[in-house]
Amino acid sequence: MNRSPRALRLGMALVAAASLLLSTACSGEAEGSSSTGDVQVGWVPALVWGAWATTPPKVDGVKVELVPFKSSNEILVALSSGSIQMGALGFNNVAASLASSDFPAQFVAGASTNSSIFLARKGSGIDGWGDLKGRKIGAVRGSSQYVHLLTGMSQHGLDLNKDAEFVSLQTPTDLNLALQRGDIDALVTFEPNAVIAVMGGYGVPVPSIQDQLYDGSFAISSGIAARRDFIQNRSQDVQKIVDAYYAECERYAKDKDAWAEEFVKFSPGDPKVIRKALDNIDPYFEMDEQQVRKVAGTLARLGEIPKDTTDALVERLNYDFIAKASGKTAQQLGKAE
């Protein structure tokens, strides 16, 4: 199968970024061989990753540092280089990287599902899929949101790159500003950015699109990954971190007010707005294998990656740590029979 221009751009970007970080990472970090010392974990300030953000200070006997990044791709590169030991990132980012290189980490817990949200600019007249033809639509290229937009349009006879003008921006904040200014007609984002746009009066939900946004793709979005060498050399520390993460997920499932109050400590915002956004989100730590299997196949079918990496992606699902933390079996957590 020949690589599409999009696949080539994605592969070249990942390789270039990986080379940069690999050249600057110190040898101890790259090897991950230390059995003591600090642990660096990565995240992007997304509301669905709130439990992951508040995990570090709850880990018993291990000093864990939370390191912010702008995107899942940045976390992927940092994990690959060894500059961090664990991180939350999209399954689609790993599926794409596996088409051309190894990913030296395993997913040890789930982090989000059903998290993409479509919004139209107020007054744009967008009420359904057919109204997207000829419009400027924004997302972060390579993100789960981008894939859901791409597949959703394809399911309805539209090509994102031919029938609309795709606008790729670096961050969800940039997308909100573009929608507010009228630079784009619609976007696909995640919380709390969606509620910020709606409450700000410039973004409106489109139920007919939202209800079918995952058609032809996958609902699962992201997981918590740990480097293989970190798992091998410090498995007890990995377990402590996953235990604390699971406890945070359980806490937030029972108290979303606490989730909102804690999140604004890591990402500035109005707790009332954050609390409203949480009406659309629940903590997620499972790893639905059937959903994960759809990720790479979807990307390959659309020409976003040159080959289907499903087997390699599924091989990186490690249920041992979250099973021990939750007291559930791997099958109860989503592992296929």
Rank of each mutant, 00 (worst) to 15 (best):
I137L: 03
Q106D: 15
S101W: 03
P68I: 07
I196R: 15
L169W: 01
A323F: 00
T151F: 02
L333M: 09
N318C: 07
G130H: 01
S144F: 11
Q170C: 04
L175W: 01
M12N: 15
K307G: 08
I281K: 06
N92G: 08
V198L: 06
V41I: 14
D282H: 10
Y246M: 10
T173S: 14
A105Q: 08
G327E: 05
D229W: 00
A277M: 09
V64N: 07
A330R: 08
R228W: 04
A296K: 07
Q236K: 14
L179R: 01
Q145K: 09
S19Q: 14
L213A: 04
A25H: 07
G123Y: 04
L21N: 13
G142S: 10
K272T: 05
V206C: 08
Y319V: 07
A46R: 12
K276T: 13
P68S: 03
A178V: 00
F103S: 05
D257C: 00
I274C: 08
R3N: 12
S217W: 10
G123D: 02
T54V: 15
A95K: 03
V188Q: 06
E286A: 15
S33P: 01
R275I: 01
S4G: 00
V44Y: 11
L179V: 01
V94I: 13
D255C: 08
L278T: 05
L169N: 03
Y146E: 01
K324Q: 13
V242R: 10
N114A: 11
K328G: 02
L213W: 08
T55D: 06
L8F: 04
W43M: 12
D311F: 02
A25D: 05
S72D: 12
S124M: 03
D320Q: 09
I196E: 15
I274R: 10
T329P: 11
V314Y: 06
N193K: 12
I322K: 10
V39I: 13
D38F: 12
F263W: 11
T173W: 09
D102E: 15
I75P: 02
L20K: 15
Q210I: 05
A312L: 14
Q106Y: 13
W49F: 13
G134S: 05
L179D: 03
K133Y: 00
V94P: 09
A78S: 14
I241N: 07
A178C: 07
